[in-house]
Computed example of a mutant assay.
Amino acid sequence: MKKVTVFLLLVSIQFGFSQSTTDFFSKADVFFKTYVANGKVKYKEIKKDPASLEALIDMAAGIKVSKSKVSTYQAFYINAYNLAVIKGIVDNYPTKSPLNVKGFFDKTTYTLGGVKTTLNDLENKILRKNFPNEARFHFVLVCAGLGCPPIINTAYKPSTLEAQLQRQTVKALNNSSFIKVKGNKVQISQIFEWYKEDFTRNGSEVDFINKFRKEKIPAKAKVSYYTYNWNLNQI
Results as ranks from 00 to 15, higher is better:
residue 141 L to P: 08
residue 198 D to E: 06
residue 161 L to M: 11
residue 83 L to D: 07
residue 194 W to E: 07
residue 160 T to F: 09
residue 180 K to V: 05
residue 110 Y to N: 04
residue 222 K to P: 03
residue 190 Q to C: 03
residue 15 F to D: 05
residue 125 K to N: 15
residue 28 A to L: 04
residue 17 F to V: 07
residue 160 T to Q: 14
residue 148 C to F: 09
residue 32 F to K: 08
residue 71 S to I: 00
residue 7 F to I: 00
residue 166 Q to I: 07
residue 174 N to T: 01
residue 63 I to V: 13
residue 161 L to N: 12
residue 71 S to M: 00
residue 6 V to L: 15
residue 49 D to V: 00
residue 56 L to H: 07
residue 150 P to A: 08
residue 172 A to Y: 06
residue 215 E to F: 02
residue 172 A to S: 15
residue 117 T to H: 01
residue 235 I to Q: 15
residue 117 T to D: 00
residue 72 T to S: 11
residue 29 D to F: 14
residue 41 V to H: 13
residue 40 K to S: 13
residue 205 E to F: 01
residue 42 K to C: 12
residue 148 C to T: 02
residue 118 T to Y: 10
residue 83 L to C: 12
residue 8 L to V: 07
residue 220 K to W: 01
residue 210 N to Y: 02
residue 39 G to N: 13
residue 5 T to A: 14
residue 138 H to N: 11
residue 40 K to Y: 10
residue 108 T to Y: 10
residue 15 F to A: 15
residue 47 K to F: 12
residue 206 V to K: 12
residue 216 K to Q: 09
residue 107 K to V: 03
residue 119 L to T: 12
residue 26 S to P: 01
residue 10 L to W: 02
residue 177 S to V: 00
residue 72 T to D: 14
residue 128 R to G: 03
residue 85 V to M: 11
residue 33 K to H: 15
residue 217 I to R: 14
residue 227 T to P: 03
residue 20 S to H: 14
residue 140 V to H: 13
residue 54 E to R: 12
residue 55 A to F: 04
residue 102 K to E: 05
residue 144 A to G: 11
residue 180 K to H: 09
residue 205 E to M: 09
residue 125 K to E: 13
residue 9 L to Q: 13
residue 76 F to T: 13
residue 36 V to S: 11
residue 57 I to C: 14
residue 129 K to P: 01
residue 10 L to H: 04
residue 143 C to I: 02
residue 3 K to S: 12
residue 89 I to F: 09
residue 102 K to V: 00
residue 95 T to D: 01
residue 133 N to P: 00
residue 183 G to R: 10
residue 219 A to H: 05
residue 9 L to N: 05
residue 25 F to H: 15
residue 204 S to R: 01
residue 11 V to I: 08
residue 15 F to C: 14
residue 177 S to L: 08
residue 155 A to M: 03
residue 83 L to T: 11
residue 1 M to R: 03
residue 149 P to K: 13
residue 228 Y to R: 08
residue 153 N to E: 01
residue 39 G to P: 10
residue 108 T to C: 09
residue 173 L to Q: 07
residue 71 S to F: 02
residue 111 T to V: 15
residue 24 F to Y: 15
residue 229 N to V: 03
residue 154 T to W: 06
residue 68 S to G: 08
residue 1 M to K: 09
residue 99 L to E: 09
residue 154 T to V: 10
residue 17 F to Q: 15
residue 230 W to P: 10
residue 217 I to M: 08
residue 142 V to G: 06
residue 17 F to A: 13
residue 133 N to D: 06
residue 235 I to Y: 12
residue 113 G to I: 00
residue 208 F to I: 02
residue 145 G to E: 05
residue 1 M to P: 01
residue 139 F to T: 09
residue 55 A to E: 03
residue 207 D to K: 02
residue 222 K to C: 03
residue 9 L to I: 10
residue 174 N to P: 05
residue 15 F to P: 00
residue 98 P to H: 01
residue 135 A to M: 00
residue 178 F to A: 04
residue 199 F to Y: 11
residue 141 L to T: 12
residue 36 V to L: 04
residue 91 D to Y: 09
residue 61 A to W: 03
residue 20 S to Q: 15
residue 53 L to N: 07
residue 24 F to M: 10
residue 172 A to V: 04
residue 22 T to N: 12
residue 67 K to E: 14
residue 33 K to Y: 04
residue 126 I to A: 09
residue 38 N to M: 01
residue 161 L to F: 11
residue 215 E to C: 02
residue 213 R to W: 02
residue 110 Y to L: 10
residue 95 T to H: 03
residue 30 V to K: 15
residue 19 Q to A: 05
residue 230 W to A: 09
residue 22 T to M: 07
residue 171 K to A: 08
residue 195 Y to R: 02
